[in-house]
C-alpha cells in the first residue's frame, strides 16, 4: 500500500515536471588540476554539450565514453558541441580516474570530479551511466540512463536538432 503511495507521488511529480524546464544546477566540482569549478561556468551560450556521469568501476560508462570519443571527429563535422565527463568516483578511485582519462585518450573531454556525488544528486542521477544533452543556454533537453552499444547515436541526433 505504502509502495503504491510512493508511486503515486512520483507520478504526480513527473507530470508537474513537464511544465517546468530543467536547467543545469549550480554545483562546485574539481577539475583535473584540483581547482574548484562551478557547473554554471560550463554554459557558454555558444555550443551545446554532452554531460556523461561515469566511474572507473562502471564498464558500460567506459564503453559509452569510448564510443563517443571514437565518433567525435565525425560528429564534430556535423555540429559543434563539447563533452563533459563527470567522474563520480569518490576518494577511493578519484586518483585512478585521473590516470584513467589519460590512458584512455579522452583528451577532447572536459573531465570534472564529483567526489561526494553532489552534482550527481542535484541532477537526480541514481546510477551511472547517465548521459544528458544540455543546450547552449544550460537547458537540459535530453537524458538517457544505462548504455548499450548504439545508444550514442541518439546524442548526436539530439545535438543536430538543436541547430
Amino acid at each position: 500500500m505504502q509502495l503504491l503511495k510512493h508511486l503515486l507521488v512520483g507520478l504526480i511529480a513527473l507530470s508537474v515536471s513537464h511544465v517546468a524546464m530543467a536547467q543545469l544546477p549550480s554545483v562546485k566540482l574539481e577539475n583535473r588540476k584540483g581547482e574548484v569549478i562551478n557547473t554554471q561556468s560550463l554554459v557558454d551560450g555558444k555550443t551545446p554539450m554532452i554531460i556523461s556521469f561515469w566511474a572507473v568501476t562502471c564498464k558500460p560508462c567506459i564503453r559509452e565514453l569510448d564510443a563517443i570519443n571514437d565518433a567525435m571527429p565525425d560528429w564534430l563535422d556535423e555540429a559543434a558541441f563539447r563533452v563533459v565527463a563527470i567522474s563520480t568516483d569518490d576518494s577511493r578511485f578519484s586518483a585512478q580516474a585521473r590516470a584513467w582519462v589519460e590512458g584512455h585518450g579522452w583528451s577532447d573531454f572536459t573531465v570534472l570530479f564529483d567526489k561526494n556525488q553532489e552534482f550527481m544528486r542535484a541532477m537526480n542521477v541514481s546510477y551511472t551511466p547517465q548521459v544528458f544533452v544540455v543546450d547552449k543556454n544550460g537547458k537540459i533537453v535530453y537524458s538517457h540512463t544505462g548504455y548499450t552499444p548504439g545508444c550514442e547515436q541518439e546524442l548526436i541526433e539530439k545535438i543536430k536538432s538543436l541547430k
Partner: peptide, 11 residues
C-alpha cells in the same frame, strides 16, 4: 515563478 520540481524514484 512556480519554480521547478525534479526528483527520482527507485525500487
Amino acid at each position: 515563478n512556480l519554480g521547478r520540481l525534479t526528483g527520482s524514484f527507485e525500487t
